[in-house]
Amino acid sequence: MFGLLATAQAAELKIGDKAPEFNLLNQAGETISLNQYNDKWVVLYFYPKNDTPGCTEEACSFRDNINRLIAQKAVVLGVSLDSQESHADFAKKHELPFNLLADESAEVTKQYGALLDLKVIKFAKRHSFIIDPKGNIAKIYRSVNPKEHVRDVMKDLKALQDRE
């Protein structure tokens, strides 16, 4: 139990913090880094597992709203501990038009405070972040409803952009 508590308390990012940099493989085997999206809004969402009901619903909701998000000058990046090959299958099966990043070592997920480590199994919690064009955390979602999340992200993204 203490291990769970320690993991839950690790890396508690706050609004205004610099978003931790990363270099991860996407579903096509290309290295994607956060800094390549400087000057863009980034929606970085962590999810437990490819092809599970909630994760599929959330990914497809991002897919179905991708043009609205692009119109809001945002890039969507999904992250889980699944392999690059698993991401490739998942993205192809559901026609996902955004990068899915493989964090098999769980290092990035841990940096963002989204790792659930049960010792026998590790997975990403369903946490999301909006990162502003300067690379700072602008919004944190620690409790995500896969069905409504994209709507909340688009509304919050608009409010954040209106403040600029």
Score class of each variant (00 low, 15 high):
residue 131 I to L: 06
residue 124 A to L: 03
residue 138 A to S: 07
residue 112 Y to S: 02
residue 94 H to F: 12
residue 90 F to Q: 08
residue 147 K to D: 12
residue 121 I to R: 11
residue 100 L to V: 09
residue 124 A to D: 00
residue 138 A to R: 03
residue 132 D to R: 09
residue 107 E to M: 13
residue 151 R to C: 09
residue 100 L to M: 12
residue 109 T to Q: 03
residue 110 K to Y: 08
residue 97 P to I: 01
residue 131 I to C: 04
residue 138 A to N: 02
residue 146 P to D: 08
residue 120 V to P: 04
residue 108 V to L: 06
residue 92 K to P: 00
residue 134 K to H: 13
residue 149 H to P: 01
residue 111 Q to W: 08
residue 149 H to E: 12
residue 102 A to E: 06
residue 138 A to L: 03
residue 96 L to P: 15
residue 105 S to Q: 11
residue 98 F to G: 10
residue 94 H to T: 09
residue 131 I to A: 04
residue 132 D to M: 07
residue 147 K to N: 09
residue 121 I to D: 14
residue 98 F to E: 06
residue 143 S to D: 11
residue 92 K to V: 12
residue 92 K to W: 10
residue 137 I to R: 07
residue 116 L to E: 08
residue 151 R to E: 14
residue 96 L to N: 10
residue 130 I to Q: 01
residue 124 A to V: 02
residue 99 N to A: 12
residue 149 H to V: 10
residue 113 G to A: 03
residue 140 I to K: 07
residue 122 K to W: 03
residue 128 S to R: 04
residue 94 H to G: 05
residue 118 L to E: 13
residue 151 R to M: 13
residue 133 P to H: 11
residue 102 A to H: 01
residue 96 L to A: 07
residue 131 I to G: 03
residue 145 N to G: 05
residue 95 E to T: 13
residue 126 R to I: 01
residue 101 L to T: 04
residue 99 N to G: 12
residue 145 N to C: 09
residue 140 I to N: 03
residue 130 I to D: 00
residue 135 G to W: 11
residue 150 V to H: 02
residue 144 V to G: 06
residue 128 S to V: 08
residue 99 N to C: 10
residue 102 A to R: 01
residue 107 E to A: 14
residue 131 I to D: 04
residue 143 S to L: 13
residue 152 D to C: 14
residue 150 V to K: 02
residue 149 H to L: 12
residue 151 R to K: 15
residue 115 L to I: 06
residue 91 A to M: 11
residue 119 K to I: 15
residue 152 D to F: 14
residue 135 G to M: 12
residue 102 A to M: 05
residue 134 K to Y: 13
residue 133 P to Q: 10
residue 149 H to M: 12
residue 124 A to M: 04
residue 95 E to S: 15
residue 105 S to E: 14
residue 149 H to K: 09
residue 135 G to V: 11
residue 131 I to E: 04
residue 146 P to I: 13
residue 108 V to F: 05
residue 116 L to I: 13
